[in-house]
Design a protein around this nucleic acid. Sequence first.
DNA 1: ATCTTATATTAGAATCTTCTAATTACATAA
DNA 2: TTATGTAATTAGAAGATTCTAATATAAGAT
Lengths: 118, 118
Amino acid sequence: MDPDRAYERAELLKAFAHPTRLQILAELAKGTRCVTDMEDILPVTQVNISQHLTVLRNAKLVDFAQDGGTRCYYLSRPKLVEGVLALITADHPVLRKTKEQIDREKARGGKEKVAARG
Amino acid sequence: MDPDRAYERAELLKAFAHPTRLQILAELAKGTRCVTDMEDILPVTQVNISQHLTVLRNAKLVDFAQDGGTRCYYLSRPKLVEGVLALITADHPVLRKTKEQIDREKARGGKEKVAARG
DNA sequence: ATCTTATATTAGAATCTTCTAATTACATAA
DNA sequence: TTATGTAATTAGAAGATTCTAATATAAGAT
């Protein structure tokens, strides 16, 4: 992965990487919500929610449609957000390998870099 | 999502959310690597790589098997890491909705919170 | 024992992120 | 036009993260 793309993608992941923002995203995954809806659910101030929504908007994870004085927020890339939420919510057992297992994997020819054929 | 789980999951995502760590994870997704392998690929110091590997180990995203003086690092939760890498690598078109579309979605009864039946 | 190679640790400065307090803006109702 | 409800912005303090420099540890070779 080249450094520029790594930087971009890290920026995207940073937008996810905060407890309040994850809770906002999880809530929006259930449907459109306005800021007052979120205030009812989250144990933080309106100002703080608004600040986190700004981060999420800048990352293009959410957007809103204006409805008079209120804003209806929704996921602007639902597949991405739902995908990430599903992955971090699932249980992923932690593997442990010995040097011998790794050697056997290499012998079988796994995913590692190999000399070009031909 | 309850605040404790949100906190835990945000911690996990923070481990992903750095360009150098993403590059390390992408490299390990190709196969086992030792620290010198990574030094050859990444434009950062050995010390810094080691520090990022510590972060990744603490998050249980990677682990290593000792091989004499070198350490063979591998993904300890490959499905999780590969899943996240695939999601952030894919192109996810950005949706835009009007208030009217949102109203119609609500009328159809979408994912939003609804009064309990019964 | 000493040197070399491979990797980790520690300390601290620089930078970035987050939260709180104060204020602003905008839409609607009275 | 004043009040009310909804949401955003700004400034700055507090806290967390990251990087660099110096040093340490451990294994293998000489």
